[in-house]
Amino acid sequence: RRRVRAILPYTKVPDTDEISFLKGDMFIVHNELEDGWMWVTNLRTDEQGLIVEDLVEEVG
């Protein structure tokens, strides 16, 4: 499975499927959606939700 790491922190918009995260958080990518969004699991918090790919980098 594809893994990505947050390069910046992010605070979710209330009442959306987004998740908040810290710089350095690792995610497993489940689905890549339109307009650069990804459905992921945050490995630190075990939370699932949407993040935008501009805020993460690939992990080898």
Rank of each mutant, 00 (worst) to 15 (best):
G49L: 01
E32Y: 09
V4I: 06
E53V: 14
L8A: 13
R5S: 06
G36T: 04
D35F: 12
R2W: 06
V56D: 01
E32N: 14
Q48V: 09
D17R: 12
L50Q: 09
E57Q: 09
E32M: 14
L50A: 11
N42R: 03
T41P: 01
Y10K: 06
I7L: 11
P9Q: 10
Q48D: 09
E18A: 04
R44F: 05
T45R: 02
Y10F: 05
R5A: 07
Q48L: 07
E34A: 15
P14F: 08
G60Y: 13
V13N: 11
T45I: 02
E58A: 10
Q48S: 11
R5K: 10
V40Q: 00
P9K: 07
V13A: 12
R44M: 08
S20L: 02
Y10N: 05
V29N: 01
W37F: 10
L43R: 04
T41M: 06
E32L: 12
G36M: 04
H30W: 15
L8T: 09
G24D: 09
H30N: 07
V56E: 00
I28W: 10
R1S: 15
G36N: 08
I19Q: 02
L33Y: 13
Y10R: 07
D15R: 09
E47W: 03
A6I: 02
R3G: 05
D17W: 10
L50R: 15
R5G: 02
A6N: 00
T16F: 02
I51S: 01
I19F: 02
V40E: 00
T41A: 05
D15A: 09
D25V: 01
Q48R: 10
I7P: 02
G24Q: 03
R1I: 15
V52E: 12
L50W: 14
V13E: 13
W37Q: 08
R3K: 11
D15E: 09
W37K: 13
T41V: 10
E34T: 14
K12H: 08
V52R: 10
D15C: 15
T16L: 03
R3W: 13
G24E: 05
R3D: 04
W37S: 08
R5N: 03
D35K: 13
R44N: 07
W39F: 11
T45Y: 01
D25K: 00
S20F: 02
E34M: 14
E57T: 09
P9D: 14
T16R: 04
V56A: 04
K12F: 03
A6W: 00
V56R: 01
D17V: 09
L8N: 11
G49Q: 00
R1W: 14
V29C: 02
T16M: 03
D15F: 12
R2P: 08
A6M: 01
P9S: 11
I19N: 01
K12Q: 08
V13H: 12
H30Q: 09
E18S: 04
D35R: 09
V29K: 02
I28A: 08
M38F: 10
L43K: 04
M38Q: 03
V59M: 10
E58P: 10
L50K: 14
N31D: 13
F27R: 00
P14E: 13
D35H: 13
T41E: 10
V59L: 12
R44K: 04
I19C: 03
D46E: 15
W37R: 13
T11R: 07
G24C: 10
G24N: 08
R1T: 15
V29I: 08
M26E: 09
R44S: 07
V40M: 00
R3M: 14
K12E: 06
T45E: 02
E58F: 06
L55P: 01
F21M: 04
V40G: 04
N42M: 08
P9N: 11
V13I: 11
W39A: 04
S20D: 08
E47Y: 04
D54R: 11
T41Y: 09
V13S: 13
N31K: 15
I28P: 00
L55F: 14
W39R: 06
V52A: 14
V59C: 15
Y10M: 05
R1H: 15
V4Q: 02
L55T: 06
P14Y: 07
K23L: 10
T16P: 01
M38L: 13
T45F: 01
T11Q: 11
H30I: 11
L55N: 10
G49E: 00
G49T: 01
R2K: 11
H30L: 15
L8W: 11
D25A: 02
N42C: 13
D17Q: 11
T16A: 03
V59A: 13
L8I: 09
H30M: 13
W39C: 13
D54T: 14
A6D: 00
V40A: 11
D46P: 01
G49H: 01
A6S: 07
R2E: 06
E47R: 06
P9G: 14
L43D: 05
E53P: 12
N42I: 03
L50D: 01
L43C: 15
T11S: 10
D54L: 11
R1N: 15
G24A: 04
K12W: 03
G49W: 01
V52C: 15
R2C: 10
Q48Y: 08
N31H: 08
E58R: 07
W39H: 06
Y10E: 02
K23E: 11
